[in-house]
Design a protein around this nucleic acid. Sequence first.
RNA 1: GGGGCGGUAGCUCAGUCGGUCAGAGCAGAGGACUCAUAAUCCUCCGGUCGUGGGUUCGAGCCCCACCCGCCCUACCA
Length: 598
Amino acid sequence: MTKVLTAVAWPYANGPRHIGHVAGFGVPSDVFSRYMRMAGHDVLMVSGTDEHGTPILVAADAAGVTARELADENNRVIVQDLHDLGLSYDLFTRTTTRNHYAVAQEMFRTVQRNGYLVEQTTHGAVSPSTGRTLPDRYIEGTCPICGYDSARGDQCDNCGNQLDPTDLIEPRSKINGETPKFVETQHWFLDLPALAAALKKWLDEREATGLWRPNVIRFSQNILEEIKPRSMTRDIDWGIPVPGWEDQPTKRLYVWFDAVIGYLSASVEWARRLGDADRWREWWDDPEALSYYFMGKDNITFHSQIWPAELLAYNGKGDKGGEPGEYGELNLPTEVVSSEFLTMEGKQFSSSRGVVIYVRDVLARYQPDALRYFISAAGPENQDSNFTWAEFVRRTNDELVAGWGNLLNRTATLIAKNFGEIPEAGEPTAEDRVLLETVEAAFTTVGGLIERHRQKAALAEAMRTVAEVNRYVSDSAPWQLKGDDQRARLGTVLHVMAQAVADCNVLLSPFLPHSANDVDRVLGGVGDVAPMPEIREVEDLDGGPAYPILTGEYSAAPRWERKPVVPGTKVGKPAPVFRKLDPSVVDEELARLQASAS
RNA sequence: GGGGCGGUAGCUCAGUCGGUCAGAGCAGAGGACUCAUAAUCCUCCGGUCGUGGGUUCGAGCCCCACCCGCCCUACCA
């Protein structure tokens, strides 16, 4: 049994999340975790909402609420979405807990003590009215190169040149239009160059495993070449106070410095809530433990450079040496599993332009497993992929309903009509044996593919197995086995079908957990194939405000192997598990999209 | 500008060590069956693997150039 940390990207709480987000980190991390648990590993799956940073402040100002109020609201929406999708977090928390503040500050202090945080004077833009940092992207003005009047501080969208905000002619704040003030300001910089050699060594070792996706390892190695110190504090009054700068309430930790620490702080919180406060160390301090980080490609920098750099600095493993802090020597990521981007009807998702489908809107109208199926079958695993409603309807109707759902129905109906319970198997024929061997072999192939993060291939293999069973049913034609003299053969065929369907259900359960439980009930079980997360309202462990978490008890998941069906189990006439979609939903959804985009 | 990814059947995509690798699903045509949410099963149709060179006994696969699309470029997260 291996300790496996599934570290899932933290959804940013400036609004509800769209299906591109859950396609990138949510569903793949859950499929992986569910499978690894079934394969006998000790999985700890953690995440939470990321709630600091400028965009949340800006959104809160626009809504006339405080940043905390906005974060509270979006945290709830996101928790509900992830719950409804059936994502099996051991703990889904948030970055505004006191526990997280304490862990982030401990990391900062130790990294600082080890010498990897250096104070530097820099200049940046601030808003004169609020004193807050104005990030480059929040400044616009006239491009000095092409004269475009809405160039951003970091780049001109018209001519594509990279800019410095001080280059802009007549710069103005995108937030309130005022003229930014360029000031000198002190910040703590993470000394990445002092960690570059250690980072390179770690990346080279990771590359040598051959397991990382080519895009990810190449990109990670590439950005190492132009490594520079990077500021880990900001002029902002929303975020985690900077240790040693408590007297300066407008200086806070950079949101990314603390967000990645969430993986550690959530593990700590999980252990504390379990009443076994040091339990998290089994995933973090034991070099044998494995850790997999799931995210979209825009997060690679932070997971294959910033976070490992923080860990190396904390461990005292850079050029400047040092000693680990109270958390001990922490494990660096085993694998950064980044996905690419999902596009929406051929266009990039954009909340501001209305090119977006929110998770909750999909879940309000369609089954969660229909979305999970689409994402698993056609998601942006190794390259960008496109979501279209037509394809969503087709995948649901032709593959989920017509392929898998129909196999279940014909099996259950035949059993219900002829026996009312799963019959005993008689002497198997060669065909029976071949089918059962084929299905059983799929545990190895599908499992191996999931383990190597090739979920599209894994699901395709599972669905190919479903097709094999459908073929067996057609070839065996149990509906033609009518006389008393054929009753024993009929029983055997139906027994084999029941076994094969039960096996397929286990194979599909990491992808389709909700329906896996429904399928189990159709076959006379109690629906305990795929444990589900629950939302729980909890007190902050250290006296902060209460909040909802996502957690669950997943140890009851079945093993990743054949579980023999039990003859005599009652099977009644089935009700469909999967809902077929009317083709008209394509036009309805496209009209909806059109309306929101205009 | 720099870096990266992709361009394979009408559509969506597999093809991980250069040697049955020219594939799957859908769409289209025909047939079988009737247990099943008109689902299922079988057969057929279908490609100059972006373009042009090169390496090799042999190239979707390796090298070079070019065309097209997308992404990243680190003070958005």
